[in-house]
Nucleic acid binder design. Structure first.
Lengths: 83, 83
DNA sequence: CAAATATATCGACTTTTCCCGATATATCAA
DNA sequence: TTGATATATCGGGAAAAGTCGATATATTTG
């Protein structure tokens, strides 16, 4: 999912019908591509959010998720320095 | 364990009695510090070895393990570029 | 070769993670 | 307000990972 969200335009064409990509991609799009149930995908996304890798924005009945690039940079640096 | 092996002289003083650190640290030293059973530590180390994070060298009845720094560098870069 | 020592492997049990269906909550549309 | 849609949360069963004791293998020493 994290890789998918790196190129949302390519991986989630259906998102165009939900107002574009500025806020991220909504759960239903990710679920359809993942082939897992709605509850599983929702839980995954909330875990990734708590871990700081993605950000959520609620707009109406939709929740949009997008990557937090800073977290990946930080993880990469942490592996370099601490591990 | 991976962090311990970054500074073997500091974390495994008992290793001095096993011929020093040039080949790495032997399993018994790591086991004592980890506080887990011998079998568990042996399995951990073999998993880390298969994953490429450490290298093993058998010398007599001892197996010495040491870090493979390249693997950490590669992981850090992989997170930067692919994730 | 036999006993001692260091490590590896195996089988079983426990704990954690994964994933689901059911249900709850929130928003939108009529 | 009611029904439809999107997402979140909950409880449980299945799968995977963690950990152990017992045992096997390899090496050294006497």
């Amino acid at each position: 999912m994290l890789e998918w969200l790196k190129e949302p335009e390519i991986n989630f064409p259906g998102q165009l019908e939900h107002g574009g990509f500025e806020h991220g991609v909504c759960v239903g799009q990710i679920q359809a591509k993942a082939g897992l149930t709605q509850s599983t995908v929702s839980e995954y996304l909330s875990i990734l959010q708590r871990a700081g890798f993605i950000e959520a924005k609620r707009v109406g009945q939709w929740t949009y998720y997008k990557r937090n690039e800073g977290a990946f940079e930080a993880l990469s640096k942490l592996i370099q320095s601490n591990l």
